[in-house]
Design a protein around this nucleic acid. Structure first.
Lengths: 229, 229
DNA sequence: ACACCAAGTTCACAATTCGTTCATTTTGGC
DNA sequence: GCCAAAATGAACGAATTGTGAACTTGGTGT
């Protein structure tokens, strides 16, 4: 599967030349033309990496970065015009992963994208393992392994998939139906209460592991993996 | 509000047993007895999902499917008799969402309806996140989440909907009846005092959070979310 | 072929939360 | 002070979620 890349920039020429070059490199590219569009495209498209301009109408790059970080930890590279005031500290605080100054060399951008993706995907182990880590918890989708407080814990596949999905989309609420869609698959035929039971069994395993996150019920809506504070 | 379902089939017994079962499941069911009727009922009734027989007098299911797809993308499940020649590829091209072979198990049909609706509805909900933000407060309609001073606070669905409505129409006064209309729905039957109680509970949660806005009573009229200064 | 086991699912019932109503008290306008 | 409007507190019923246990299924080993 191709790596999905989202460009958020209000200058059409830049967007197009980026798309041309990056699609040629094998990425699947989507473009958003301002900040507001950027945030909503992010949620819809779920890209693997974001190239984010700072100066934009409607909503600037800093704000977009902030809002993306509320729901995801996917890597973000900030694009900044030469001469533009650029606060690196702010960028780091907001969780950007890298910066590049316009006009930039395509080759350099490409290299930075690869570097960031590499860093991101090898948070811990080798290869492109999909791992989610928070305080005292580590979920590896590839190894189908759950580690609590550093110790490996047995867990059935479906429970792990559910936990992985919720944790990698932390702070966001999903209805039972959405979870059936995303974790069980769009063609799943079955009762939505199945989700309840898996959540319950997950909670038994996760009980008392950390006070920095919880598997929370949002009454009348569904469930979410919530990071506290 | 009940999910509206349209059955297009020329066999009265099948229609009736379907109606019986599906109404019991909570759907609002309408029946069309042939293809021509099917198309015109679709336009009038605007169902959320269609069960469509293929072999029918006057106009067959393929044609009906084609005509519905010209005006709508609502989900369609094709009903096909055992032994009938059935072209899955054609079905997909025409935009049918699922197929089931007669005679079918009611439970399976029910499961397929749910699955198709689930797929369909989690499609269009991915749009813009509706968030309202003011000093120290943030209300997300999509996430059903209230944040005060950056921290997530538990809140029942109805209270959140009310708060979201008032905050997104700040400085404007609404009578209790208007609020019942907009938040509870035009067909709500009940006491307007209900609004008072929800406002009261909201005030308990919002107390002391900010001095830049307030949930204000307009005596003799109703309530408003007022921005100060 | 058979029993066995674990994962996944379904089901029935218990516990909880919410929305609503109602009775009572408090407040605001005149 | 009087009256209507609004705030409040308590309580009920309905809807939602939690939970334990039974059932189904697919894989394993005998």
């Amino acid at each position: 599967m191709a790596t999905k890349l989202l460009i958020v920039d209000d200058e059409p020429n830049i967007c197009e030349s980026l798309r041309l070059y990056l699609e040629n490199e094998g990425y699947e590219v989507k473009i958003a033309n301002d900040g507001v569009e950027g945030v909503s495209y992010f949620k819809m498209y779920e890209p693997d990496i974001v190239l984010l301009d700072i100066m934009m109408p409607r909503k600037d790059g800093w704000q977009v970065c902030r809002e993306i970080r509320e729901v995801s930890s996917r890597p973000i590279i900030m694009l900044t015009a030469k001469g533009e005031i650029f606060d690196k500290v702010l960028g780091l605080e907001l969780g950007a992963d890298d910066f590049i100054v316009k006009p930039f060399d395509m080759k350099e951008l490409s290299a930075r994208i690869k570097a960031v993706l590499r860093r991101y995907s090898s948070h811990d182990s080798a290869g492109d393992d999909e791992v989610v880590k928070f305080d005292n918890i580590e979920v590896s989708r590839q190894k189908y392994e759950l580690k609590l407080c550093g110790k490996s814990v047995d867990i059935p596949p479906k429970e792990l998939e559910l936990l992985y999905f919720l944790a990698s989309n932390y702070n966001r609420v999903f209805t039972r139906d959405q979870l059936l869609d995303k974790v069980w698959g769009f063609d799943y035929l079955g009762d939505s209460r199945t989700v309840d039971v898996h959540v319950k069994r997950l909670r038994e395993k996760l009980e008392g592991v950390s006070d920095k996150w919880v598997l929370k019920t949002v009454w009348g809506v569904g469930y979410k993996f919530e990071l506290l504070q």
